[in-house]
Amino acid sequence: MALASNQTRYTAIIARLKLRHLRLIDAIVEAHSISGAAARLHITQPAVSKGLREAEDILGVRLFERGPRGLALTVVGRAVVARSKAIQLEIRQVSDEIDALSSGLSGLVTVGAQLVALPALVPAAVRLLRDRGVMVPVRVIEGTLDALLEQLRAGALDLIVGRLPPVDRDQRLVQEVLGQEPIVVVAGAGHPLARRARVRHRDLAQADWVFPPPGSPARAPVMQLFTQHGLARPPGYVETTSYLTVRALLIEHGMVAALPRRTVMRDVEAGWLRILPLAFSQESLALGLTMAADVPPSPAAQRLVECLREAARAEAAGLAQREP
């Protein structure tokens, strides 16, 4: 079959080639025969033969040749099939995008996250979101509560996941509790306090500490640990919200910190950190969601909220099972 000129072939393909021709070619490739393709497509063999002749005429090339195992693609046919699959994939993606736009499940979801939510809760919720086929981009921004609240009010965040401090109604914020989170005092597994069966409060005043910075909801309970027991705050300490920094200071530099239990559990179970045997009398702080009251969440953000709720329930159940 003589090859047509590029312009003639392009004009013919645009005007005459249909998706049914591409699906028919795929069926012949999979079945290695006209009869097998007809059975797959639930049409007659003459219809398959006619469709193949049309496709080859439109493209100006022969796509198949008969071999010992039935019909086999020619060199040009293999190139056509490769492009055909790319075309069909693009059409599938267009269809998926239309579905997402029609349902509102599109666009970027931006989450402000505090330390307590970063190691487990947010990743688990994103995994659930993907498992449910919601393939929207999710941007996670870490920061202090004050900074995240400012971004939420400015419309730069869809929601905040973390501690739930008291808010006034005039702040136009809504909150939802996902659970209660206790604070535990932790040190590296090799720290002298980690090897004790009992740790006294006055022992803490002699340790090097990593404190939550001002503005963090966890700071007040940690500071109360010292004031309620008449202890002086250690003169040398580090303030940070970065768990990577805290973790390195605990494991490698012999410091002590008071952190949300769920933040440290993986490192505790892996043997890197130890929860010190010390009564922490302060009440657990609420963990949950904070959103703008006057801006309804997008459908995609609402789906992420649902996944955060489910992930929080599963995480709480898992922590309860691991407790002695």
Rank of each mutant, 00 (worst) to 15 (best):
T44R: 04
S95C: 06
L289E: 03
V185C: 09
V138F: 00
G155P: 06
P221M: 01
P192W: 05
M291Q: 15
V174Y: 01
G60V: 13
P192G: 14
A220P: 08
L308V: 03
I34H: 14
A120Q: 13
K18A: 15
L3F: 08
D96Y: 00
I275M: 15
R62Q: 11
A220R: 14
R132G: 13
L71R: 15
V184Y: 02
A4P: 01
Q180P: 02
L118H: 00
V134Y: 07
V75S: 14
T144Y: 09
R163Q: 01
R219K: 13
G188K: 02
L278I: 14
P68I: 00
F211G: 12
V264I: 07
R20K: 06
S216A: 15
P68L: 10
P235L: 10
A320M: 09
V136M: 07
I98F: 11
K50M: 09
L89A: 11
R23A: 15
L159E: 04
A15R: 13
R20L: 10
R313M: 12
G288N: 02
A100G: 06
A300E: 00
A72C: 04
R266E: 05
P299N: 04
A257Y: 04
R132C: 01
F226H: 00
K18F: 05
V184S: 10
L287A: 11
A279K: 11
M291G: 08
P182W: 08
A258L: 04
L52Y: 10
A79C: 06
I87M: 05
R69N: 14
A27V: 08
S284M: 14
V264A: 05
I87K: 15
R169S: 07
